[in-house]
Simulated scan of single mutants.
Amino acid sequence: MGVLDGKAAIVTGSARGIGRATASLLAEHGARVLINDLDGDLAKQASAEIDGETASFGGDLTQEGTPEAVVQKAIDEFGQLDIIVNNAGYAWDGVVHKMGDEQFRAMLEIHTVVPFKVLRAAAPHLRDAGKADREAGREIFRKVVNVTSISGTQGNFGQANYSAAKAGLVGLTKTLAREWGAFKVNVNAVAFGFVETRMTADLPKQMRDVAPQIIPLGRPAQPEEAAGVIFLLCTPWSNFVHGQVITASGGQMTGMT
């Protein structure tokens, strides 16, 4: 038996990196998982390669109607929704005095607005389902995990847009925890530091070389290690962890300056 048997999950941005590792781990422990990516073919490929019951959904979550469609796809495939991991995102770095409006707003859209829209669309299956359980005398926990960053909790040089968007996701997390806690929907976030992904592979060599010096554990995390933190917040072992931002940075207390 898996700890997540009978559960259904959406992991956005899950064809690669942290999202892929998270989807794989959830499926390994019994969850049915909807794999999402901007590239529909990559989403299908990941779905086929991950052991367990999965489905796929390709689409740009920043486009009108797509966040609602990904939720509906999960309901159509699995008949229920118990776990949402808002992981999709990317970086578009630049210093403030040279940053245009489009560049700033793009980060807000993918890292703050998209999770809001996904969660709003999921409300009938999380909040309302929990309300029905409460009225029937049942206590069933459902889970939301938002992927943020230490850039959002302490800022980072050249990432005003990304940091602001990830900080906004922290605010969304804490507010939703207050609104949905009564219905046994745990809402938490994980603030990652340097994780070896496609996004961090594009960092300048100077930044990559300094990582062992600023991370007390001496190296960046692997996606599988990042996924473990998210997984914990999706399990019954975290039922009394609520409204929290868990920092998973190997002890790093500064940005990648």
Results as ranks from 00 to 15, higher is better:
12 T>H: 05
12 T>D: 03
13 G>L: 01
13 G>S: 09
13 G>H: 00
14 S>K: 01
14 S>Q: 04
14 S>N: 01
15 A>Y: 12
15 A>I: 08
16 R>S: 08
18 I>T: 06
19 G>V: 01
19 G>D: 04
20 R>P: 02
20 R>F: 15
22 T>P: 02
25 L>K: 12
26 L>W: 08
27 A>T: 09
27 A>Q: 02
29 H>R: 14
29 H>L: 08
33 V>K: 05
35 I>A: 08
35 I>T: 03
37 D>K: 00
39 D>P: 04
42 L>F: 10
44 K>M: 14
46 A>T: 12
46 A>N: 05
47 S>L: 02
47 S>A: 13
47 S>I: 00
49 E>N: 05
49 E>R: 07
51 D>C: 09
52 G>W: 02
53 E>Y: 13
53 E>H: 13
54 T>K: 03
54 T>E: 13
56 S>W: 15
59 G>P: 11
59 G>R: 01
61 L>N: 05
62 T>Y: 10
63 Q>L: 14
64 E>Q: 10
65 G>I: 08
65 G>T: 12
69 A>M: 07
70 V>N: 03
70 V>K: 00
71 V>Y: 06
71 V>L: 05
72 Q>F: 03
73 K>P: 13
75 I>P: 01
75 I>V: 13
76 D>R: 03
79 G>E: 11
79 G>Q: 09
82 D>S: 05
82 D>K: 01
83 I>R: 07
84 I>Q: 01
84 I>E: 04
85 V>C: 00
85 V>E: 00
86 N>V: 06
88 A>C: 00
88 A>R: 00
90 Y>S: 04
90 Y>E: 03
91 A>R: 10
92 W>G: 12
